[in-house]
Nucleic acid binder design. Structure first.
Lengths: 261, 261
DNA sequence: CGAGGGGTTGATAGCTCTCAATCAGGGTGG
DNA sequence: CCACCCTGATTGAGAGCTATCAACCCCTCG
């Protein structure tokens, strides 16, 4: 029984060169100088690539840790659900994200798609063995996990010490930066925002109603503009000021990788 | 200029076998089977071991990323401070914790001691080079960072979706478990808790006054007992129930390592 | 002995949640 | 093609939780 049982998944595609998956995890600078042994070990790995519909689980919280997954395209998020049903979204993730990696026998968090996604999976044990024999990959994974931890820290600071308005501002700054929809030439940042207000609420520890009110006020103050799930930042300096954070804080390694092949 | 400038640090101790530092990062199962090459690389590293007084900085937020540090003994915490001065404590850390490791040119968080601590430091670049050539160490670091990320996720869920009382309960459950002060035989968990209520507040996103009130109520309800910085859990099941979490969720790899040498 | 940090307690204000009702848009079945 | 439904967004009113401000105590430390 795989974790895709309840999803609408398209047929696995084995024709793609599996090693291309690593282009999402490693940059050329790391990938090219590899010796033939490491190269061969990477090439010998057979990822299972699937397309998963929007709003479908990728990995279930609490399930046995069966696979690690690499997001190849689309939006998704990691979350935890409490026994009483309250949900906390831990991170929104894009192409290149590595999920399901960790210690412990079960997944400490779940992953769900926001848009339709291409996802590559590999059995957990196989990935760990690969890590142990390929230092270059291990280094990249360390950096990937490290970046993810840094974002978790930023989110914690938001949740614990920022007001609702500040949290919303910080999230917008983070997402516009991470999604690289910066349009600095026109002094405008705009982004196609497929997330619902309920997701924003679950990410920021707020009720969806309050998120709605805050977004309305930000729009009223001419800081942002929202039309049909497209968000445009009208006043980037004001937004950064309200967030109490610099946009560059959110630019991690992921943004240094080439765009999805 | 080192990051210890403002601290009362005792004289560095180079007499200790530096490789013992790795016993805090790696278990015997990993350390013993190493080939001579890796072993030699690990042994050739010269850690700088210092004793740092209580309430002193170990690493400063925003400073250049100069060193990674391994906590050898004592309590400390990682934190972020916002421009307006509000502080969020990200994690309390014990012996074996690796801090200061991450991407980016400056430290995204600071580290401060709670009690006097022994700390081993190594220049960041040197540690990274070591990682790249020692897969066993890289694996351990991945797991260490991964555990830290898992705790960050739990903390996020607390901050975003739990009430003040639930957060306090969850923190107590976490700390009693992580500090391994379980005294299951007597059906009591007790722990020497060197943290101030202000630190608890900064960790949970609460004011110190509110923390005080909550702790008082928990004591009043016979769930815990506090005497002179010693916390005793009187009703572990009730505490776990209120926390909405299982104690075992907080038991990471760190608890599987041998006690400090 | 004074100063200062941490802990405690009370009163008040304010932010955010909850509940409720309405509206808009997209997908579905007939 | 249309009615229906369901999700998500919106707006309002009220309650509740937590912050803030203030005062006081206790203890340690210089």
């Amino acid at each position: 029984m795989t974790q895709f049982t309840n999803c609408n998944t398209k047929a696995p595609d084995h024709n793609k060169a599996d090693s291309l998956v690593f282009r999402h995890l490693m940059d050329d600078q790391t990938l090219l100088p590899l010796d033939s042994g490491e190269r061969q070990r990477l090439d010998s790995v057979r990822w299972l690539v699937k397309t998963i519909d929007r709003n479908c689980p990728v990995i279930g919280q609490g399930e046995d840790r069966e696979v690690v997954a690499v997001l190849l395209s689309g939006w998704a998020f990691c979350y935890q659900t409490l026994p009483d049903g309250k949900r906390q979204i831990l991170d929104f993730i894009f192409a290149g994200a590595l999920v399901g990696f960790g210690t412990g026998l079960t997944n400490s968090y779940g992953v769900e798609t926001v848009t339709a996604c291409n996802v590559a999976t590999l059995p957990h044990g196989q990935f760990r063995r690969l890590l142990a024999t390929c230092p270059a990959l291990a280094m990249q994974v360390v950096e990937r996990v490290s970046d993810s931890e840094m974002r978790a820290h930023e989110h914690m600071t938001s949740l614990g010490r920022r007001s609702a308005r500040e949290r919303v501002a910080a999230l917008i700054v983070e997402l516009t930066c991470r999604a690289q929809c910066t349009d600095l030439g026109r002094r405008e940042y705009s982004i196609d925002l497929p997330v619902t207000q309920m997701m924003i609420g679950d990410a920021l520890g707020l009720s969806n109603e309050h998120v709605c009110r805050i977004l309305g006020k930000l729009a009223n103050d001419k800081v942002i503009e929202i039309n049909n799930h497209t968000l445009k930042v009208l006043d980037q300096p004001a937004l950064s000021r309200e967030a109490g954070a610099d946009p560059k804080d959110f630019i991690g390694r992921e943004s240094q990788l080439p765009a999805a092949a």
